[in-house]
Design a protein around this nucleic acid. Sequence first.
RNA 1: GGAGAGAUGGCAGAGUGGUCGAAUGCGCCGGAUUCGAAAUCCGGUUUACAGCUUGCUGUAACGGGGGUUCGAAUCCCCCUCUCUCCGCCA
Length: 425
Amino acid sequence: MLDIQLLRKDLAGVAQRLATRGVTLDTARIEALEAERKAIQTRTQDLQARRNQLSKQIGMAKGKGEDASALMTEVNAAGDELKASEDRLAGIQDDLSAQLMVIPNLPHESVPVGKDEKDNAEVRRWGEIREFPLPPRDHVEIGEDLQLLDFPTAVKIATSRFVLMRGDLARMHRALAQFMLDTHTQEHGYTEVYVPYLVNADSMRGTGQLPKFEEDLFKLSNGMYLIPTAEVPVTNIVRDEIIAAELLPIKLVAHTPCFRSEAGSYGKDTRGMIRQHQFDKVEMVQMVRPEQSYAALEELTGHAENILKKLELPYRVVSLCTGDLGFSSAKTYDLEVWLPAQNTYREISSCSNFEAFQARRMQARYRDGKPGKPELIHTLNGSGLAVGRTLVAIMENYQREDGGIDIPEALQPYMGGKTRIPAAG
RNA sequence: GGAGAGAUGGCAGAGUGGUCGAAUGCGCCGGAUUCGAAAUCCGGUUUACAGCUUGCUGUAACGGGGGUUCGAAUCCCCCUCUCUCCGCCA
């Protein structure tokens, strides 16, 4: 959520910055609503003040045993107008806040201006792309040949966009999550948290999934939602809290399943594990002082990169352009891992600074100990990493000509010392 | 699932229709005392929003929503959550 004060002060400027995201702000409507709000609110508060004053006098008069009927007549006379004024004000404020809730964040000045993913700016590359003597096979072929990856059975149990893993592949999937968690907690200073996988609507509003993106979520019959990312439960830990300044920055990491309806992605990535309704992810979240959030974004992105480096997977870092930025984000770096079978880089992590956008929705603030009002914190998060896609990347980059898969050295301790998933015999 | 109790400020906990944003205690901040500290004493200490002379004034908020009333923390209705006992259960 944007700061309403900013919209009042510089509506044209806000509209201009939103235009770089391809969003058109109905400034005339907002201006009209805001003008009416101001008039009605002032009027309402004056009427309330008058009523309070008279009611207090009635109380005092009755306390002294005096007749208060004249006062009561007076306060009754203004009753209808007050009620109408209050109702009108509530209506306008609901309308304004509903509009405010669907306005995306303003891009940071360092974000490249562009229309869509084609305008994203590559920041750096890391790692050497392996040469294959024969055309590299994709993870589906590799996994199915090994009989460790099974899509038809998952479809039978559930529906499409689910997967069943067996044996060493299921184990490597688990090992990856453990490896990531250990790295972030032991080397990067994060505290591991275990969180609910179902959340309420308030939490979804807090991080920005609601009200605008309900169709992307799985909603349960009791009104709760399956989390699309650990960002939701983890970030909402600080909702409605005032944090002591010395506790910042807060750095949390969680491993959770993620559930996405993938509405609107029909026909996209239908093959394999790239786009699933259910996938695991290790997510880093930071809550920081505002002046530190951009340094924190670089740091957090580096933490995600570290995982790829340890696994020796080639990747590149991309700064999303204004048109490709997520709803709540002010700036996002995507990490894209090399997938040899697709002969391209594919997103494996997304690291974002939300500035105060989520904090304002969540009323997540901190206090310095200095006098004055508590201030909104800044929130960040990033995948560290998407576990399923990391598994895909390993399968494809570490595939052997005999059909087996080498296990990256960093992962071997988590696989009981095994160095390879052997070819099917 | 059955029975009961409850939800008030950072915490504990009073308050059952009127000058209550809310006693008291703890905590926290400032000051006094002290060589310094503890103890003690004094003062301060919620948040959001609005208006304008930016420091004041006003409005709202006692789990959430609705209602009664001139006036609601207090009365009524609905919802949510928490706790205790019993049952069931990973």
